[in-house]
Design a protein around this nucleic acid. Structure first.
Lengths: 146, 146
DNA sequence: CTAAAACCTGACGTTGACGTCAGAGGCAAG
DNA sequence: CTTGCCTCTGACGTCAACGTCAGGTTTTAG
């Protein structure tokens, strides 16, 4: 198939596909006129590329690990790299989970009439830390050069 | 405290703090000479900002939602916004989990004796929790001081 | 008092993953 | 053959979250 169809099938832009090729993530056969042609399997590969991009991997890292993931072949270095990225993703999941739970807490408590929401575990909500912007508060002006 | 101390405490750069202020995420009192002064609570706020950045929220979105999380109040719109972001994070967690599982599968398969083309004998795969020390690698830096 | 360290405000630089535009050529249909 | 869509190769534009530098002021340590 040509690039337009692959783009439509995999849901990415034509530009992105050319960029992937430029980064060494996706190769194409060229017709005599120079047009790119892809096998059916390219769609899956693009999905995989998108997956790894979404996980925060850079083009270079993807280029390094993609052969391993596709061919399931690895050297000790690539296995170490895989493990590193896996752990990074794991940490990211944990952080996202904490963030989600915090947002959940806010959502649940935002309907309550009182202010007993404690998003700091065992610390009292300090009454006012002079942090609230008072409507008619004349802030100190920035006096540059007295 | 002044900006340098806040930066040290919260683990972000001075430039980042000034940027947060510019984006309306963090306000500071100014001394007569124009220097920023922050209350103790600013450190927590910075942590929260970092958390939301790490979850993929933009400055503008954080600016919209941060008052809800801090003041524990919300309008129907902000609740909807919170729910939207929560669901986005949830989807992101699901996608990351799938990606991690896929990497796990590759790691297991490539570690198997018969399926991996390990052309370098036996080496320890103890490359764990060690991030790639590439000099100019500007990936997602969350600067967790651990 | 003095020198170093910290802070200030612009303002331009960086990076990755593309978007977008220009100009030129290819491909099936009528 | 021409019309209209698709594709090609550069090459510049974009956007966010800062990094970095310059030139000047303020605070602090000795």
């Amino acid at each position: 198939m040509r690039i337009g169809e692959l783009a439509a099938r995999s849901g990415v832009s034509v530009r992105a596909l050319r960029y992937y090729e430029e980064q060494g993530l996706l190769d194409a056969y060229r017709s005599d006129s120079g047009q790119r042609h892809y096998p059916e399997s390219a769609a899956d590969r693009v999905q995989l590329i998108q997956m790894l991009y979404a996980a925060g991997l850079s083009s270079r890292t993807i280029a390094e690990l993609l052969p391993c993931v596709e061919a399931k072949v690895s050297t000790p270095e690539s296995r170490a790299r895989l493990a590193t990225e896996r752990n990074r993703i794991d940490a990211q999941i944990a952080a996202l989970t904490r963030t989600r739970d915090r947002l959940d807490a806010v959502i649940r408590l935002s309907g309550s009439p009182n202010s007993g929401c404690t998003w700091i575990p065992d610390q009292d909500v300090a009454a006012d830390e002079q942090d609230t912007p008072v409507p008619g508060d004349p802030r100190v002006r920035i006096t540059h050069k007295s």
